[in-house]
Simulated assay, not measured.
Amino acid sequence: MELVSVAAVAENGVIGRHDEVPWDLPEDKKQYRERVAGHPTVFGRRTYEMFADPPGSAQIVLSRSPREYDRETASHASDVAETVEIAESLGTDRAFVLGGGAIYDLFQPHLDRMVLTRVPGEYEGDTFYPEFDEDEWLLVETEAYENFTVETWERRDERSE
Results as ranks from 00 to 15, higher is better:
70 D>N: 08
124 E>I: 09
97 V>A: 03
64 R>H: 14
81 A>H: 02
24 D>H: 15
113 R>H: 07
133 D>E: 13
64 R>A: 10
151 E>L: 08
73 T>K: 13
12 N>K: 06
105 D>H: 11
116 L>Q: 04
156 R>Q: 02
112 D>K: 09
19 D>Y: 02
122 E>Y: 05
41 T>S: 05
19 D>T: 05
41 T>R: 08
112 D>N: 15
12 N>W: 11
158 E>D: 14
128 F>G: 02
60 I>L: 11
62 L>H: 06
2 E>T: 13
94 R>P: 04
123 Y>L: 10
29 K>T: 02
5 S>K: 00
122 E>V: 14
141 E>Y: 08
121 G>W: 02
111 L>E: 03
89 S>W: 02
15 I>S: 11
1 M>V: 11
76 H>Y: 15
79 D>S: 14
130 P>E: 13
122 E>T: 15
125 G>Y: 04
127 T>D: 03
14 V>C: 05
85 E>Q: 11
128 F>W: 08
136 E>D: 12
82 E>F: 01
82 E>G: 04
103 I>F: 02
122 E>F: 10
24 D>G: 01
152 T>E: 15
120 P>V: 13
121 G>K: 06
88 E>K: 12
84 V>M: 08
88 E>Y: 00
87 A>T: 01
126 D>Q: 07
128 F>N: 08
89 S>L: 00
10 A>N: 10
148 F>E: 02
97 V>S: 01
20 E>N: 13
93 D>W: 09
27 E>Q: 14
101 G>P: 08
119 V>H: 08
133 D>F: 04
88 E>W: 00
104 Y>C: 06
140 V>K: 09
61 V>P: 03
54 P>L: 09
128 F>L: 06
63 S>M: 06
8 A>T: 14
53 D>P: 01
111 L>F: 05
138 L>K: 13
59 Q>M: 09
159 R>Q: 11
70 D>Y: 00
61 V>D: 14
146 E>P: 01
158 E>S: 12
135 D>M: 04
104 Y>F: 14
136 E>T: 07
41 T>Q: 04
124 E>W: 05
19 D>K: 12
126 D>Y: 04
85 E>Y: 00
47 T>E: 07
54 P>I: 10
94 R>L: 07
137 W>K: 13
123 Y>P: 03
144 A>N: 13
144 A>Y: 10
50 M>D: 13
83 T>E: 01
85 E>F: 00
47 T>V: 09
57 S>E: 15
76 H>F: 15
29 K>A: 03
61 V>C: 06
124 E>S: 11
92 T>H: 15
110 H>R: 11
146 E>N: 15
145 Y>M: 07
105 D>M: 05
160 S>N: 11
161 E>Q: 06
148 F>P: 01
134 E>A: 15
43 F>T: 13
67 R>L: 08
99 G>M: 01
